[in-house]
């Protein structure tokens, strides 16, 4: 309950500030961004994040899953190592290199974002599936489940919360990285912030920053809810018990 109060207050604050800044209309010689532009860039921002995230999930989950198969046991430590090191690489470095290699713009942004977003998804999928109790898998196989059934009925449901947690992390990081991508001309809310900083008008910066923050917070809580809904009840009970101990 109190959580929702905090969440709601912050959202009202950020959205309110956005509206306020838009309402100023003019600071000195600078015009503020019109409401239409703010909305358009917000949608653009979501588009960039959505596209990158969709590709990242589409590739990251299968890759993370395949890495857990026995046949891959010599490859997967390397893969997981790369995913871990990759995550320590700063986002700006990713964006910069992508811009340098692919040319500045939307395409480079989506490529950089999708590669970066894929890392936590691969890692969490791998960790989630590997953390399934071997006894549970053995029992499933011993009772006559086929490989596909073990995967769909046992491994994936049990790993699902961890996989979704990875998707959540990567989405939230992505909102921020997409803002940075505004610097290489990808559009989105980053463009507003960057413009504000470039012309040294803090009001303009805030006009872009506030909705970006709101977007990140909203997506985070939404995906938190999804995680909650898609966590099998039996696992929740298990967690609660562990907490109590």
């Amino acid at each position: 309950m109190r959580r929702y109060v905090i969440l709601f207050t912050l959202l009202v604050l950020f959205v309110g500030v956005t509206i306020w800044m838009t309402a100023i209309q003019q600071v000195g010689m600078f015009k503020m961004f019109p409401p239409g532009k703010v909305v358009r860039e917000t949608i653009k921002h979501l588009q960039i994040v959505g596209a990158a995230e969709a590709i990242a999930i589409g590739i990251g989950v299968p890759v993370g899953f395949i890495a857990t198969r026995r046949a891959m046991r010599f490859v997967s430590p390397v893969l997981v190592g790369i995913a871990n090191v990759g995550q320590t690489v700063p986002t700006l470095a990713f964006i910069g290199i992508a811009g340098a290699v692919l040319g500045m713009g939307y395409r480079a942004a989506v490529v950089a974002l999708f590669i970066y977003a894929m890392l936590p998804i691969i890692r969490n999928t791998y960790a989630g599936i590997n953390s399934v109790d071997p006894a549970v898998k053995e029992a499933a196989q011993g009772m006559g489940m086929s490989r596909a059934q073990v995967t769909w009925r046992v491994e994936l449901p049990l790993a699902r919360p961890v996989i979704i947690a990875g998707i959540r992390t990567s989405t939230v990081v992505n909102v921020g990285t997409a803002a940075v991508a505004g610097m290489i001309g990808a559009g989105g809310l980053g463009e507003l912030i960057v413009t504000g900083i470039a012309v040294r008008v803090t009001q303009l910066t805030v006009q872009g920053a506030a909705p970006t923050a709101a977007l990140a917070i909203i997506l985070d809580s939404l995906l938190g809810e999804v995680e909650n809904v898609l966590t099998p009840r039996g696992l929740k009970v298990m967690k609660e018990k562990q907490w109590q101990q």
Binding site: D133, A135, V136, K137, E138, A139, A140, Q141, G142, M143, G144, V154, P157, L158, P232, R233, G234, L235, M238
Partner: peptide
């Protein structure tokens, strides 16, 4: 396997069911 019952020491009950 579906026609042979199977029980193990670590039980391996499905925690999500």
């Amino acid at each position: 396997r579906r026609n042979i019952g199977y029980a193990i020491q670590n039980i391996g009950l499905f925690p999500h069911l």
